[in-house]
Design a protein around this nucleic acid. Structure first.
Lengths: 196, 196
DNA sequence: GGAGCGCTCGAACGAACGTTCACTAGATTC
DNA sequence: GAATCTAGTGAACGTTCGTTCGAGCGCTCC
């Protein structure tokens, strides 16, 4: 039972890395078998199908993302909560390149019930950030929906350009992006609009 | 000659739509033939291979993106130039969902010389925005590199959440995102950092 | 009226795909 | 020690893949 589970986890590690590198469709069950040190048929002892392998990998990723969502405690200010969320999210996507790429490229290839389930988790994750933002912005120059979309864009795009040796370590990038976002969110309105 | 070229263009329209909807690997030459009203063999009269079809589609997309990059004229302020760039870019990615999806998902599947060429065009496009930003920010709280990455993230992520009936028309979204970005870029520093 | 050309086709190629099958060596249970 | 279960295998299934080939159109030019 325990041996079975840890073996499954290591297979999913391989699957995640292969899907990230080559994409879902360009990864064959032979590739997965080779990377896992099993025969092709042996893989099917642990995973019923390639589709379900993708579903398992996606669920794992959201398990880890959700674990980073800060729970509102009475001591923390809304801005502190946002800062924690950004730090957790950015750390994950920058440190787990495979997961980021599966999420970006392959998640939408899910079908059926698994697709619905993962899509719901994605929406909930998005909303948890939107709620934090709504609690911050007093003047509400922007809808929380738009602001959350913009912030997620800044964060999820980071892996495409970020390089630690140029842009500083992950926490420095977090601080910069958070400051850029909050500066825009809380700017008194006339600061930017007068210039347009 | 002319008939040949317009036929090729219409085939590339089909290819772009199919790659966008199903992805490069899940699109077969049979699919392309059906969508183009030709036989499979007939497609190869216009396109030497599936790989080159992808390269052609990517080049077309950058032709259109580049056409929207504003040329600096003496009358326009740096902020006006940025505004024009953002408007042009966002209009394109929101109105051309197929192109956006090919760019996001399939461009990286290019191989060989075509890959290098397209990658270079992407980098140049990124740099044209970074240069505009560098000319705006006087205090330089952020590197132009980070600011351009953040802005591109905001814009390129928009197709994943933007819906005209909720978020207003494309120009309204442009104004909101530009204002959010410029507000953060030009914020006096202590506005946001005092809160962290 | 035949030669050449631009364009299109059906048929086929070998290779790779996801999945299933019958089977086995070893451990566990009764 | 017979029966059952776990973990794994090699071989094969039918299908689809990207690509190629030879041939057949309708057209223009000599």
């Amino acid at each position: 039972m325990q041996a079975h589970d840890s073996r499954l986890e290591s297979i999913l590690d391989s699957v995640e890395a292969l899907f990230a590198r080559d994409g879902y469709h360009a990864t064959s069950m032979r590739d997965i078998a080779d990377a896992s040190g099993l025969s092709v048929a042996g893989i099917y002892y642990y995973i019923p199908s390639k589709q379900i392998a993708l579903a398992m990998v996606c669920e794992r990723i959201f398990d880890r993302l959700d674990a980073g969502v800060p729970t509102p405690d009475s001591a923390a200010t809304p801005i502190e909560l946002l800062q924690r969320f950004v730090r957790s999210h950015l750390r994950y996507v920058l440190a787990n390149d495979s997961a980021y790429r599966v999420l970006l490229h392959d998640m939408e290839l899910l079908e059926g019930a698994a697709s619905e389930r993962v899509r719901l988790r994605k929406r909930n994750y998005f909303r948890s950030l939107a709620h934090m933002i709504a609690r911050i912005d007093p003047a509400a120059r922007f809808t929380a929906r738009l602001a959350a979309g913009a912030l997620f864009g800044m964060l999820n795009w980071a892996p495409t350009w970020y390089r630690a040796e140029i842009d500083g370590n992950c926490d420095q990038a977090t601080d910069a992006l958070t400051s850029l976002f909050l500066g825009g969110l809380l700017a008194s309105g006339n600061v930017a609009e007068a210039l347009l």
